[in-house]
């Protein structure tokens, strides 16, 4: 029996008098359908008007000459904005920076976050308090984290230089945020610091869903630490791991707040990633070009997500066999 209905009127007629279907699926009458629609309406209106309408409108701007500074000619220009961008040295630099930013941030975040989650899996005294303290960066915006690290990486009075000199790792202060060679390193270390928490939380939650019996069984079978990690732990939570990484790639790519707080894209645009550059272009008023960048970002991330999910899926069955 079909339990899913588009037309509420038909639903009430067809299902009247029959037994309720299994599970939590339930039939509803036409009047109920109206009530449910009314419940959904505010959410749909808000998201439609302030998210989807600007989004779709923004997409068409990508194909027009739309510059706030000169609105005399907002004609359609086809792919002109995209061509301009691909030929733009600055834009190509931001693409390269984005890749460095995502990979450089995520690899350490993942490794440290994973290790922390493994350490936190088993209960110990004050674990709750420890988690509350260590997870606090999550509550703070990337922008503020950027400001905090901007101060710490200050070339003259920054605490990072002071500590490194005290440890005799450097002899003279490094102008971290003023020198193109070091700025990206500084920004990425701040982002690593900021994102470890997220991985630790997500992976810990997944680890806690793995039944203890699995570990006990593997211990009885004489599996060592490393063996247990690769044969039990990772296969059991691989779906969560895969999705967490995917989400983080997308979010990190799309999160220039920290960069705005720390360097504003400087020095000499060396720390601009695509999305931070996009915001700068928006602020300059060139909506056409900014929208073209947005369209490219969404397109590339979508392609990435599809290939990533395909790659993850094809490897699933083999892993599952090992897990058992």
């Amino acid at each position: 029996m079909a339990v899913t209905e588009t037309r509420p009127a038909a639903s009430s007629r067809r299902t009247a008098g029959s037994r309720p279907p299994a599970g939590r699926r339930r039939r509803f009458s036409g009047r109920t359908a109206l009530v449910l629609l009314a419940f959904m309406m505010p959410a749909i209106v808000f998201v439609g008007l302030f998210t989807y309408y600007p989004l779709l409108n923004g997409i068409q701007m990508a194909f027009r000459n739309y510059n706030l500074n000169d609105l005399s000619d907002t004609s359609w220009v086809g792919l002109q904005n995209f061509r301009t961008l691909l030929g733009d040295e600055m834009f190509r630099g931001t693409v390269k920076n984005s890749v460095v930013w995502v990979v450089g941030s995520l690899v350490p975040q993942f490794l440290i976050g994973f290790t922390m989650a493994l350490w936190l899996r088993r209960k110990f005294r004050f674990r709750g308090a420890y988690q509350a303290l260590v997870f606090f960066p999550w509550a703070v915006s990337g922008f503020l984290i950027g400001i905090l690290f901007r101060w710490m990486f200050n070339g003259e009075f920054g605490v990072v230089n002071d500590l490194l000199m005290k440890a005799h790792l450097i002899d003279t202060p490094v102008p971290w945020l003023a020198d193109a060679r070091y700025a990206m390193v500084a920004v990425i270390s701040a982002n690593v610091w900021y994102g470890v928490t997220f991985f630790a939380i997500m992976i810990l939650a997944a680890l806690q869903s793995v039944p203890d019996e699995l570990y006990e069984a593997s211990a009885i079978d004489g599996a060592g630490k490393v063996r247990t990690l690769f044969s039990i732990t990772i296969p059991s939570i691989r779906t969560t791991l895969a999705l967490t990484v995917l989400l983080r790639v997308i979010w990190t790519f799309n999160s220039p707040e920290l960069i705005f707080g720390m360097t504003g894209g400087g020095p000499a645009n060396e720390t601009h990633i695509v999305t931070s550059y996009m915001i700068q272009v928006t602020q300059e008023g060139d909506y056409g070009r900014a929208s073209a960048m947005g369209v490219m970002v969404v397109f590339v991330l979508l392609l990435f997500a599809i290939f990533y999910l395909l790659a993850v899926r094809t490897r699933t069955p083999r892993r599952k066999a090992v897990a058992r």
Binding site: I44, V47, T51, P54, N57
Partner: peptide, 24 residues
Amino acid sequence: AVMGAFLVTQMIPGFIALGSLYIL
């Protein structure tokens, strides 16, 4: 479709349509 439409907004940064939102 509704759930999908909601989740998609999480994949796309809110500021991607900053310009057209400003016009709206």
